[in-house]
Design a protein around this nucleic acid. Sequence first.
RNA 1: CGGGGUGUAGCUCAGCUUGGUUUAGAGUGCUUGACUGGGGGUCAAGAGGUCGCAGGUUCGAAUCCUGUCACCCCGACCA
Length: 579
Amino acid sequence: MRYSEMHLPTGREIPSDAEVVSNQLMIRAGMIRKLTSGIYSYLPMGYRVIRKVEQIIREEMNKAGAQEVHLPMVQPAELWQESGRWTFYGKELLRFRDRNDRDYCLGPTHEEVITDLVRHDIKTYRQLPCNLYQIQTKFRDEVRPRFGVMRCREFGMKDAYSFDADEAGAEKSYEKMFAAYNNIFRRCGLKFRPVEADSGSIGGSFSHEFMVMAESGEDAIVFCEKCNYAANLEKAEIAKPDADADKQKDQLAMESVETPDVRTIDEVSAFLNVSPEQIVKTLIFSADGKPCAVLIRGDHEVNEIKVRNYLGAAELELADDEMIMKATGAPRGFAGAVGIKTRVIADYSIMNLVNMVTGANKENYHLKNVNMGRDFQVESFADLRVSQPGDACPRCGGLIKFVRGIEVGHVFKLGTKYSKAMKAVYLDRDGKEKTMIMGCYGIGIGRTVAASIEQNFDQDGIIWPMPLAPFTVIVTPVNIKESDVMKASEDIYGELLACGVEVIIDDRDERAGVKFKDADLIGIPLRIVVGSKNLAQGRVELKIRRSGESRLYAVGEVVDEIRKIIAAEMNAADEAPLI
RNA sequence: CGGGGUGUAGCUCAGCUUGGUUUAGAGUGCUUGACUGGGGGUCAAGAGGUCGCAGGUUCGAAUCCUGUCACCCCGACCA
């Protein structure tokens, strides 16, 4: 490719509405342009990188036995009504009508379409397992798109769906995809790790997210330094503590104290001069419209996902003032377990507490020396809180650490949620009708590209890992008006092309400084600089983008050297150990 | 949906508080020419704007008022 002929509009200014570095650099490097909120165009440079990621995905998916298909983006309402998601999915599903007034939506995901496809064509266990995937545009009408292509409304996604005859088969399909995903992200040159994730309201048994480590990531990840436990914060388990019967011996008599307008943990702690660990927070939740009290130690936070999962509720939110008043007989801020008129569940954190401080279910009063069993009963204890620094690993007891990550992939055991609702069945060996067991597996393509930039940049611009680079080499003639410089540049360019290297020659009539800045910005891994001084001695300069290192080579040797470097780096990306 | 902010040249922004000396500006980018040629070079000449849109107040509105749209940020919500 000739730079002079390429549509590659680079920019010096940081766009005013770009927050994260990947978004800023993708715009400045001429990769993308925003059309409207959450909707982006890819320019040639950006699309080349997209296709690199897609190609790696294709190769690994095919290797894992999946087959590529292409499903429609416009989907009829009937399918979604059949699965129940037409009402369930909410506003993220963009709905519209055609000229005959029929309801449609833009596909945010394709479980319905693929299940419909498979149920028509797969009739027997002999056709199973089956794993189909596609790389296609999704539309999700996000409440708040942000961070450029990282969280946008229209985006490219690879989604795969597996169909199996039984649990064991489904497990195998899941493991294959898990392995394929490891290969994909490793080959993309990303620092990532798979983490346990919440299976959410879909209710599958198992789910992993593939997280790219980055400070700007929207997800918090918990991992253990000793063992390989890693989980999304919303999923991170906390081990059940041992019961400590001894402590219960020192129970004091319960007393009521007046605490005028003292509501929050901090206020109670200061007013009564007790530490937050001694106070029990009593949160009233509305679980599918019914109140439920959740007890937790004052210095901890409730993990609403855990509560929702524990209660098996479809919808969970903090109760409104009216429900609180009805359940506790007091306004917000004075709830307590003693005498409360709701179910009461408690986090493990209060299991061994004695002489607790709680609300009195009476305005402007709290209770001191409250004790479980004696003063109130708990329906059950469970892990309901958010993991925090200092917690022990739930697997090995080691210390856990926190990092932030970008979710680039998600593998999911679906079970029979869709196959059952949509009657995707087959006949087994005995001629009996059985429901297929599904799994689904997604990768955000644009997000993977953005995540790569979040991990690979410096003050000059992007630093592509070789497997994703839009071009591997850029040939930079310092001055195109010098014919010997141009001739040598063209020769090297031609040679690289001839041996299949993706190369761009910067044949623009620009000053060297401009070319260097642009080459750095767009992040080409290897740069060959052809200038008259070195050329007079038969040499050219090879500069490595990532290290900044530069070496001189004889004109006749530089192509060989480059081939060696490329081979070594691509190999390293293929064989990099998992972290 | 709640809160906050911003809309002026392709891009980044000034001007608005206190309406009229600004014929709407700067930097950068773009065009042309000359010089220059290893880290966004210099000089000169130029093109480019119904100041988001619609009303209103006024002799007079980029500037004040009302409405509206778009975009961004924080939160809530949600795969």
